[in-house]
Write a protein that binds this DNA or RNA. Structure first.
Lengths: 159, 159
DNA sequence: TATTGTTATACTCTATAACTATA
DNA sequence: TATAGTTATAGAGTATAACAATA
């Protein structure tokens, strides 16, 4: 039993954080794989699905830079994703009337439909992963992760 | 064998799980990036670091298949990682005396040293990510994630 | 000069499938 | 035939850097 009162300066407690890192990465790998498999029949990848979901959160069609910021990736990464989604006719690039440098990304009808299928697949994979937790535990986990998320949240993200 | 007690069938609770999925993926992305940056000066990638850490948990040098199982990837993925680590002289492929089909992966002296640096970098990135949580919260999070981990744990993982 | 998005390029991680060599 | 690891190949995801167009 380590009788430590310090938090992050001693090795003992650091082990907790290191372990957390491992756990998070392992879980995310499983989640990612599960999602990929469930999304495959829909013809879209997890990252594309993520962009699609992000898109649904905006009142106004966002710019590429908005999406990059929100998805926490570099703008270049968004280009590829939008390319794919546009080819699938799920989204559309629209010129920004106010700023000709900008492009607004619009959700098309097919995109909305895809989102419905998506959510179903998403729930399936998440539910599968989280099956071992009861409702209270899920709530607790969400709350804890929310703290971490908020600490880096680019925007409040109205749902 | 569907003996569920009304946890995953209603939409309301599903939203929680879906959100959890998002949170996990976002966190893992941040963690991954942070690790990559911290590991860069050491010349190894996150996946290589992970293999190295896994290696340290074995009493006997494990086989490729053992590592694949433990890391939860296909054997082919391990090949590439071991290739890189071997080139860095951090690990060594050794013939298995009992089974000539098998290869044992041995941690070399440089590997042990790298592990020390690794752990330091790891703690830094994890501590950074988890800074918003106090000690109790970290404990709670670890416990929750442990439940999820165990539900899929390939081996008990003697530390 | 700063911003917005893109082209060009490269690398990590991981997967499937087919092959080799054992067993 | 089944197992252990590999070669071969592919694709998702993301990054940096250089560039064009616009502000």
């Amino acid at each position: 039993m380590e009788t430590r009162t310090a938090t992050v300066d001693a090795d003992g407690t650091d082990e907790v954080t290191a372990r957390l890192a491992d756990q998070l990465l392992r879980l995310s790998r499983r989640l990612h794989r599960s999602q990929r498999q469930l999304l495959e029949p829909l013809g879209i990848t997890p990252a594309q699905a993520r962009l699609l979901r992000a898109l649904a959160h905006y009142e106004q069609p966002p710019r590429m830079a908005d999406l990059a910021h929100r998805l926490d990736v570099v703008p270049r990464a968004v280009t590829t994703l939008v390319d794919a989604l546009e080819a699938l006719e799920l989204v559309r690039r629209m010129p920004d009337p106010d700023n000709r440098r900008s492009i607004r990304i619009e959700l098309r009808e097919g995109g909305r439909q895809a989102l419905l299928d998506l959510r179903k697949a998403r729930r399936t994979s998440a539910a599968e992963l989280l099956a071992p937790l009861d409702e209270d535990q899920r709530g607790a986990l969400t709350a804890l992760l929310a703290v971490l998320d908020e600490s880096s949240a680019p925007e409040p993200a109205r749902c």
